[in-house]
């Protein structure tokens, strides 16, 4: 399997969470809410494009609205391959995080 970058992983998850409402702004807002980080709108597009290219996501054209300066929305849907990679990533993550208890671990001194 392919190892996703953290941002790719988060974006895939966000798309999964947002269901039909996943487009640039909503994904960005969701990420910002979850991570609490200020990020630029632009920074989500390149991972989004990569994910579409890797066929984990499918892009669909929505309806244009005046609030958007006449530009249409671009919705993203999780593909089967996307679901698969999420499952596998989760498995890897669980294995990796297994047994880790937050802040209790002693520092390792070398």
């Amino acid at each position: 399997m392919e190892i996703l970058t953290k941002l790719e992983e988060l974006i895939l998850l966000a798309v999964w969470k947002l269901k039909e409402e996943a487009y640039g702004v909503s994904i960005y807002k969701h990420l910002q809410k979850v991570t609490g980080q200020k990020m630029s709108v632009g920074s989500v597009y390149f991972p989004l494009d990569r994910l579409v290219k890797k066929r984990y996501l499918k892009a669909m054209k929505g309806e244009p609205t005046p609030r958007r300066g006449g530009m249409s929305k671009r919705y993203y849907l999780l593909t089967d391959a996307g679901l698969n990679i999420l499952n596998e990533t989760k498995k890897v993550n669980d294995t990796m995080w297994d047994g880790y208890t937050a802040l209790k671990e002693k520092k390792v001194r070398i």
Binding site: Y23, G24, Y28, P64, R67, R68, G69, M71, S72, R74
Partner: peptide, 13 residues
């Protein structure tokens, strides 16, 4: 042209 939706996103925000 397909990237124009990004510009729309930014404008919405």
């Amino acid at each position: 042209k397909s990237h124009y939706s990004y510009i729309g996103d930014i404008e919405e925000m």
